[in-house]
Write a protein that binds this DNA or RNA. Structure first.
Length: 203
DNA sequence: AACCCGGACAACCGCCGGGCG
DNA sequence: CCGCCCGGCGGTTGTCCGGGT
C-alpha cells in the first residue's frame, strides 16, 4: 500500500496526513470487519494482503488484516488455556532459542507467536520464582513429565476471558446471527460462528 | 463507593530480508 | 544492479478488566 511504503521510507509518523491516511482504520477490530475479512478469505483465499484489504473494502492496512487473521480469526488458531505441557514446551524452547517467538510458535500447533510472546512476558518472565524449578538445560521431557512437573511448580494457567472484551465498541451482537446482506452473488458466506466450527485443513 | 494499580491480551510500529520488475 | 513492495518478526504500546485499598 502506498501509505505503507511511505511509512517505510520516512519512518515517521505521518507528517502529511494524506487522504489515504485518513481512510485507514486503526485500533480494535469490529465484528463487521472480522466478518468481511473471514468471508473474503473464505472465498478468495489468503495472500497479497494489501490488495486483499482493498478488494474486501476494509479500511485497514494489509498488515493489520494479516495480523488479525493470523492471530485471531484463523479457524485453527487456539487462544487461551495454555496447557501445562505447552507452558513447559515454551519454557524449554525459549531457553534454547531465546525470543524467537515465531520459531517457538511453530512447535505449538495452533498457537501464534503473538500469544506465546504475550504469555511469556506476562506469565513466565514475571514469575521467576515459580520458574526456578524448571531445569532449562534438560532435554525434551516426555509429556507425562510435563504434566506432573508443571502442576507442582504452581504456575497454573488461567482461562482467559477475552470474549467479553471483544466487540465492545461500535458493534452489535446481532451481526453474529444475521446473514450478510451485501451482494454475495453465489459465493459462500460465513458467519464467525460458522467459520470457527469448520474443520479447517491446511491454512 | 470511588479510585488506583497491575495483569492480560490485542494491535501497532519499526525494521529487515526476499522477490520481482 | 537497483529500487520498490510485501510479508514476517520482535518489541512496544494501548486498552480493558478485576482486585485491592
Amino acid at each position: 500500500m502506498v501509505e505503507e511504503a511511505a511509512n517505510h521510507q520516512c519512518m515517521d509518523k505521518r507528517i502529511n496526513s494524506s487522504q489515504d491516511d485518513a481512510d485507514v482504520r486503526k485500533g480494535p477490530w469490529t465484528m463487521e470487519e472480522d466478518l468481511i475479512l473471514i468471508n473474503y478469505i473464505a472465498n478468495h483465499g489468503e495472500g497479497d494482503w494489501n490488495t486483499l484489504a482493498r478488494s474486501a473494502g476494509l479500511k485497514r492496512t494489509g498488515k493489520s488484516c494479516r495480523l488479525r487473521w493470523l492471530n485471531y480469526l484463523r479457524p485453527d488458531v487456539r487462544r487461551g488455556n495454555i496447557t501445562p505441557e505447552e507452558q513447559l514446551l515454551i519454557m524449554e524452547l525459549h531457553s534454547r532459542w531465546g525470543n524467537r517467538w515465531s520459531k517457538i510458535a511453530r512447535q505449538l500447533p495452533g498457537r501464534t507467536d503473538n500469544e506465546i510472546k504475550n504469555y511469556w512476558r506476562t506469565r513466565i518472565q514475571k514469575k521467576p520464582k515459580q520458574c526456578e524449578s524448571f531445569d532449562y538445560q534438560s532435554p525434551m521431557m516426555t509429556m507425562d513429565n510435563h504434566a506432573s512437573t508443571s502442576q507442582s511448580n504452581g504456575v497454573e494457567d488461567v482461562a482467559p476471558q477475552m470474549s467479553h472484551q471483544m466487540y465492545s465498541n461500535d458493534t452489535n451482537a446481532d451481526a453474529f446471527a444475521a446473514p450478510m446482506l451485501s451482494d454475495n452473488s453465489g459465493e459462500n458466506f460465513w458467519t464467525v460462528e460458522d467459520f470457527w466450527t469448520q474443520p479447517f485443513d491446511g491454512e
